[in-house]
Design a protein around this nucleic acid. Structure first.
Lengths: 234, 234
DNA sequence: TTTTAAAAGATAGTAAAACTATCAAAAATA
DNA sequence: TATTTTTGATAGTTTTACTATCTTTTAAAA
């Protein structure tokens, strides 16, 4: 039995749906490889076109510009990840186990999901770590938000936030903690890889340490029911 | 009595020291205004030169490229902030108070420090929020790190990490928690401003809520002395 | 099977960005 | 006053980020 996972993307992200042609799938596939290898700044439609064996104009028929393409692949990842989480936590009642599974999924090196032939999730995970925040750290964030380009990210955030509330309905910062988990899972890995002195994992370089840190952070926080923060000096 | 604060910058960040001429100071001043208003992507040396009344070549005599210029102003900010923290926590013994002051300083809208005439710290704070992570989220991060361009950031991180250890010497994640505090203070503000559903502060839009969240997160975590993370299911 | 519409290929061209180079004028300093 | 350093003015190159057009190929409808 073989299942093919299909992710429905926001139409406004592309001019022509890349999933509906070989060329389109190649654009996605090689974009992921290129951005991963050379970084988003060095990535151009011309170089991409050369790698695929098409022309610059060919790529422009699918995506308005490289920012939209990045938005596309990053959104795709968040949607894919949300499905993984829903799948992985299905039939599990205990929110503790669910949260731990989510933290592990966010932090661990992903393996290529073969049910999506033109997308290498392992590379995509690394792109999300290194380039992910560039999709919203722009002056067009408001306009992009109005076009619902961040919906997959928000959905994921809400999913995690709701599990936090399930565990502790009195916890006041479920959404912020959810976005903190997502962002920190990736940023601590980036720091561990590139600026290790900003982390406590510089020696081990092991994602299991990142997971332990996040577990400690999250559960300390949602177990602490004190309305007043911590010790009350000043 | 008037004190003039001078921050010594890494020589390799510039070709000619911008603090040593009027033109140089103008480059810094107008860069901060421009990047704040239009965003780093739209910022070019040509537009900057026009605003100042010099030429593109004039700017290139000071900075190799716009990435170095961003690194310069962001590093400047971290150094300036570290000084503020050292100053503000001087003679305070209680690490709790120190940490709370730091969290507040990181999260609150900064006011322009008049002892640094050509730098508007209020704008710079907003730039660090919106553009700060772009200095390290590049493929040159390794090379930039070798040139010690991230030293001010690391110093600040170490300062905070050491205070965490002062409070709880057994806490295992002082560095990662320190970088989490810095990054999250800024990112939660960015989300609050631009993607409020990712936070719990969308309605109030108040930094004091961000501060409360971070205080709760930090103190829950460093007060939790359990070696084993949280509840022990799975 | 023909027709026709959609997608891809090939080529060309433009505006702006990201630089480098050169030379003369002005300022600062010795 | 001489000399070095800094600026101004101008010009030019390569690359990026597009837009336009026309032809060929492919796919779908009639």
């Amino acid at each position: 039995m073989k299942h093919v996972l299909h992710i429905k993307m926001n139409d406004s992200l592309f001019l022509r749906n890349p999933e509906q042609s070989e060329l389109g799938k190649n654009i996605i596939k090689y974009s992921i490889e290129f951005i991963n290898k050379q970084g988003f700044e060095a990535f151009t439609f011309k170089k991409l076109a050369e790698a695929i064996g098409t022309t610059e104009a060919g790529v422009y028929r699918y995506f308005e510009n490289k920012h939209k393409l990045l938005l596309y692949i990053i959104s795709w990842y968040w949607s894919w990840l949300e499905f993984q989480i829903v799948f992985l936590t299905n039939n599990i009642d205990d929110p503790i186990i669910k949260l731990k599974k989510i933290i592990r999924l966010l932090s661990t090196k992903i393996e290529d999901d073969l049910s999506t032939a033109h997308v290498n999730e392992a590379l995509l995970h690394q792109i999300v770590i290194s380039e992910g925040s560039k999709v919203y750290l722009t002056k067009q964030v408001e306009s992009d938000n109005k076009h619902h380009f961040f919906k997959p990210y928000k959905d994921l955030c809400k999913l995690i936030g709701d599990i936090i509330l399930e565990y502790n309905p009195k916890y006041k910062y479920s959404k912020s903690l959810a976005s903190t988990i997502i962002e920190m899972a990736h940023l601590q890995i980036f720091f561990m890889q590139n600026l290790p002195s900003l982390t406590d994992f510089g020696k081990s370089k092991s994602t299991s340490d990142v997971i332990a840190f996040l577990n400690h952070l999250v559960f300390s926080s949602i177990n602490n029911i004190d309305l007043e923060t911590a010790p009350k000096n000043k």
